[in-house]
């Protein structure tokens, strides 16, 4: 089933395809950052549509913090194989050597080293001049002001006060050597749009989004899934089997589950409609400090 012509989802789809094609046509060495989540799933689906019957003329890249849910990694590898796409998996080996992880070093430091630094490392290593990301403007306040084509200096920094004006659908794709542009084809999508599109287009997503019995522990009011034996348990702390699912996916120790019985896509969309807590709530890193996302982005976080 495809979305109807003339519907707002079709307009969003058309706009995203236009953006993705523009990047392929104008940049020397683009890459699609694939985070394995639902937004990445939609972005990848749109890339497949944009170039059909050709394959997308760029590789996928996953910045692996080594703390992703196991199901995510399996899903990632299978998806790339099935679609016949090049997949680059980048791990910050220095971080691995130093044993950086969320339990030993805290969420902020872990994210900085294994995600932000690692991403910069990978972009520099492969010399990518454009990188697609699945961020949406409705996610968070500082993202609402970011361009679709977001310019980054050679140090991967974002200067919110000095963004290029972006008019009509005319995107300025010019960069000097070492500089790059982050491109957000889903800028104008809302979370609800994403779920509806996944349903209408029958897009496969990681099973963690669906409710199932999973072993969790409660920490500071957040339900954390015990995905492997690296998770240290306090004395007397016992993982409990609960019917839970995830609204966003990231590193398992940093991603809160919600109790839910939504086991199908319609259940999830229905649940969203009566949800009263916004999406990033489940991510522990955002609560560290106010306006923390803007700070992270200036430093090169997606």
């Amino acid at each position: 089933m495809a979305v109807d012509r003339g519907s707002h989802l079709k307009r969003l789809e058309d706009e995203s395809i236009h953006i993705i094609r523009e990047v392929a046509a104008e940049f020397r060495n683009p890459v699609m950052l694939y985070s394995i989540g639902k937004d990445s799933a939609v972005m990848l689906h749109l890339a497949m549509k944009a170039f059909y019957p050709s394959k997308p003329p760029f590789p996928l890249m996953h910045v692996d913090t080594t703390w992703k849910f196991r199901e995510m990694v399996e899903f990632r590898d299978r998806k790339a194989r099935e679609l016949g796409l090049d997949l680059i998996v980048h791990i910050n080996e220095e971080g691995v050597r130093d044993g950086v992880g969320p339990f030993t070093h805290g969420s902020a430091y872990h994210t900085q080293v294994m995600k932000t630094d690692s991403l910069k490392q990978a972009l520099t290593k492969y010399g990518f001049d454009a990188a697609f990301g699945g961020a949406r403007r409705d996610e968070e306040k500082s993202r609402a002001k970011e361009r679709v084509f977001s310019f980054r200096t050679a140090n991967h920094g974002w200067d919110p006060k000095n963004q290029r004006p972006e008019l009509w659908h005319l995107y300025n794709c010019r960069v000097a050597k070492g500089e790059s542009i982050r491109v957000f084809p889903l800028s104008n999508w809302t979370e609800l749009d994403i779920w509806q599109y996944i349903m209408m287009e029958n897009i496969e997503i990681v099973p963690l989004y669906y409710a199932a019995m999973r072993p969790v522990v409660e920490r500071d009011g957040t339900l954390i899934m015990v995905d492997d034996d690296r998770m240290p348990l306090a004395d007397g702390e016992e993982p409990e089997q609960k019917l839970v699912r995830f609204r966003t996916l990231g590193c398992y120790p940093l991603t809160g589950a919600i109790e839910s019985s939504a086991a199908t896509l319609p259940d999830i969309v229905a649940e969203m409609l009566i949800a009263r807590t916004s999406e990033r709530q489940g991510r522990v890193i955002d609560q560290d400090e106010n306006a923390s996302m803007e700070k992270k982005k200036r430093e090169g976080y997606f």
Partner: peptide, 26 residues
Amino acid sequence: AAPASTVAVDLSPEAFAEYLESQEKK
């Protein structure tokens, strides 16, 4: 900030299908 909360899902399939259709027509 609210802690993880249980959300009840109680829309009937018919009501839901109707909702989706209205979304598409917006």
